[in-house]
Structure formats: C-alpha cells, structure tokens
Amino acid sequence: MTTASLARTLTATRRRRSAQRASIVTSIAMILMIMLVAAILVAPGLFAHVSPLFNGTDSLAAPSANHIFGTDQLGRDVFSRVIYGARPVLLASLGGVLLATLAGVAIGIVGGVAPRIISVVVMRIVDMLLALPVLLIALILIATIGSGVNSIILALGVAYTPGFARVVEASVRKLRSIEYVEAAKVFGSSGLRTAFRHLLPNLVTEVVVMASSAIGWAVLTATTLSFLGLGVQLPNPDWGSDLAAGATSLSTAWWLSTFPGLAITVTILIANFAGDWVMTLIDPTGRRTRTKFRPLGGLRTGMPAAQAIAPEEPVALDPAETPASEERA
C-alpha cells in the first residue's frame, strides 16, 4: 500500500515536471522559429549565397550538395529562390492580415456597441462582402489598382476584414451582457473607456486565433494570386509564380514546384502553432489547452480534469488572518 502510494506520488511529480519542461521547450522552439522567419524576411542573403536571379551553367540539375534544392530551366538556384521568395509572400500575407485585424476589430466593436440603426447597416455591408469569394475581391482590386505587393496587401486586407468583423461583433455582443461589463456601466464608465478597458482585452484570444489561421489562408491566397500571374512578376522570386512555372515539368523536374510548395505548407503550419502558443501565453487563467510539438512532449491537447472537481484553486489565505477578523466584526 505504502509502496504503491509512493510510486504514485513519484510518477505524479515526474509528470508535472515533464509538463513544465515541455512548455518551456515549446516556448524556446517557437521563439527560434519566429526569429528564423524574421531573419529570412530581413536578410535573406544570410541563408542563400547565390542571387535568385543568377543564371548558372547547369540548368535543371537535380538536388545535390551544390544546389540542395536543384536548379531551374535557366540554371537559377531553387533554394535561393525559395528563400528570397519568402519576402513578398510573407509581407503580403502578414500586412494583409494586420490590416484586416485592425479594420475588422474596429468595425466589429462598432457593430457590437453602436445604436441599432448604425450596427444593422454596418453589419449588412459586412455580410455582403463576406458573400464575395476572397479571390474575386482580390482580383477586382488588383484589376483596378494594378498588381504588386502593395495591392496584394490591400486586397487581402479588404478580403479578410468581414470575417474578423463578424466574429468580433458576435463576441462583443456576448461580452456586453457579461456582468463585468454591466458593472462598468453601473459605476459610470463611458462607452469608449469600457471598450478599451474591458472589451478589447477580452477579445484578444479570439482575435489571435482568427489572425493565426488567417495568416495561413492569406499565404495561400497570396501565392495563388502569384500563381495566376497577378502578384509578383517573373523573373522576381515568389513561391506562387515559381510553383506555376514548375508545374508543367512536374514529371521531369519534381523539385521545381515541390520546394516552393513545401515552403507554403511549413509557413502555414508555423502560423497556426504560433497562434496557439500566443493564446496560451496571454490566457489569464493559464488553464486552457496547451499545444506542444509531439517530438518535444506530445502535441497533446487535453481538457484538464481539475475543473471537474476543483473548479477553482483558491488563493491560500492565512486562515487566521481573514475569517477571524470578520467573524468578530
């Protein structure tokens, strides 16, 4: 009996410690990965020593030690093109999502707190935009203001705003009937103050989740636009246009489209993991599901059962301090 309970205590502490270690490892891995992405964005020359526009001697060479991702029809290094191609894609998608987040949150809060007439008009416009396919909006905008990274940012921003606005509006409506927002009204907090002190901070979780998945979608849309020839123009490197260029020779030179395609996949994955990680970081209760990488401790998302029996962990107060004082009050 005693051995059994001792063993249980040991495994319990080990499990707790391993959970802690896993979350630290996750943090380090995430920070490294974000730094890597930033470095690729700012100084791609650090990783690729050959210019993506340099036409080498051997064309259509398979991946080797010299050209780890191979070369294309004009003898350009595919690895270098993948590294340099990250910049337009990431700029467009990050910029577009940032724009959409700002606009969407603003419109959503207006829709959630404004008088009925205004909110109905605003939200119906949002609904109409939501009904148009993202690519169609982008195509219309690019057709009117011309192609290039800036117009892709604008196009993505406009296209993703309605989604943010809808979700934010719904959360604001829910938050407004929550007691702490009502309490703010009772102690005379003005509408603007309530929005900044109580609504915005409590929307962060939803917005982060939305934004991280939107980055994934935006990367896909940005590369699709380039794939269709509406984004970055050849010979400048871009994952979408390179993918398109290599698509025709997939059976003879698989590396041409495979590596830009893999880059897109990895970027979307990183965006989603980063979103989950940020969400656990900013959760005030620290009780939400935690995401971990499987090799580093399991990509496990389990509902903590503690809530079922110990829904709250009260602060251990000095028993002599509080109750006695008011008992005799």
Binding site: A12, P304, A306, I309
Partner: peptide, 8 residues
Amino acid sequence: IDTPNGTV
C-alpha cells in the same frame, strides 16, 4: 483524477 496540478 489526474490533473495538471497533480493527482486529486
């Protein structure tokens, strides 16, 4: 019950 805070 196993919880992140220990066995309850």
